[in-house]
């Protein structure tokens, strides 16, 4: 038995198609994840009842597997709302909600890392809590948050492979399909792994770049 490079190459076009979906899903989930996570992270630090809602959400998501969350959305939710949810929508939903909880913790830590004197200075000038958050805390927290947020994106890029279980043809699913036809798992999974590596490496480069830009802005 020999290693067949030609199979690695010939599966590339189809795998790249899957990778496109992987990137798309991740990008959308990151987008909504940041929105959800910012809201949940701020809510978690607030004093009202929303604090507890946010805590339950964050703990539930972080304490359960993404796979199970995906099943709940794809197989469970339709029974409750009375209509099927397309796999794509279910995947975006599950990934966004999942990412939101992790981003919330990142946002919370980022906000808490900002010196209390910043808030006091803003309040002493007559600013509202919302203005203080918007103009003083979040812009500074963003700098703190960027590296862990980058790591979260990378994690999500890899974790998105789990939605292959609901038959969404992202990168892993495409790999499975090709193996079904070629019976060459080693070459195909290696090709899949290489594509993931290129994607995660690119993201971390981009994050590094942004981090430097932000640092130089000070």
């Amino acid at each position: 038995m020999s290693f067949r490079w030609d199979l690695v190459w010939s599966s590339m076009p189809m795998l790249l198609q899957g990778a496109r979906l992987t990137v798309q899903l991740t990008a959308i989930a990151v987008f909504f994840g940041v929105i959800i996570g910012t809201i949940a992270g701020i809510a978690r630090l607030s004093k009202g009842p929303q604090k507890y809602i946010a805590a339950v959400y964050i703990d539930f998501i972080r304490g359960t597997p993404l796979l199970v969350q995906t099943f709940i959305v794809f197989y469970g939710l339709p029974g409750i709302i009375g209509q099927p949810i397309p796999a794509y929508t279910a995947a975006v939903l599950a990934l966004s909600i999942n990412s939101g909880a992790y981003v919330a913790e990142i946002v919370r830590a980022g906000i808490q890392a900002i010196d209390k004197g910043q808030t006091e200075a803003a309040l002493s000038l007559g600013m509202t809590s919302a203005q203080t958050m918007r103009y003083i805390i979040l812009p500074q927290a963003f700098r703190q948050i960027l590296p862990p947020l980058g790591n979260e994106f990378i994690a999500l890029l890899k974790d998105s492979s789990l939605v292959s279980v609901i038959a969404l043809e992202e990168l892993v699913r495409k790999g499975q399909i090709i193996i079904g036809r070629t019976f060459r798992p080693f070459e195909v999974w290696l090709a899949v792994a290489l594509i993931y590596l290129v994607m995660t490496f690119s993201v971390s480069r981009i994050v590094d770049f942004l981090e430097k830009r932000v640092k130089n802005g000070v």
């Binding site: 002493s124 000038l125 600013m127 500074q140």
Partner: peptide
């Protein structure tokens, strides 16, 4: 908030907003 606007406070540790230029620190509020 009205009262706070009427009481300017200067802190031991300055508490300037480090992400803003001096001018923006002063004009924000």
């Amino acid at each position: 908030r009205q009262v706070r606007q009427e009481m300017g406070m200067v802190f031991q540790s300055f508490n300037l907003f480090p992400h803003m230029k001096v001018l923006d620190n002063i004009t924000l509020a």
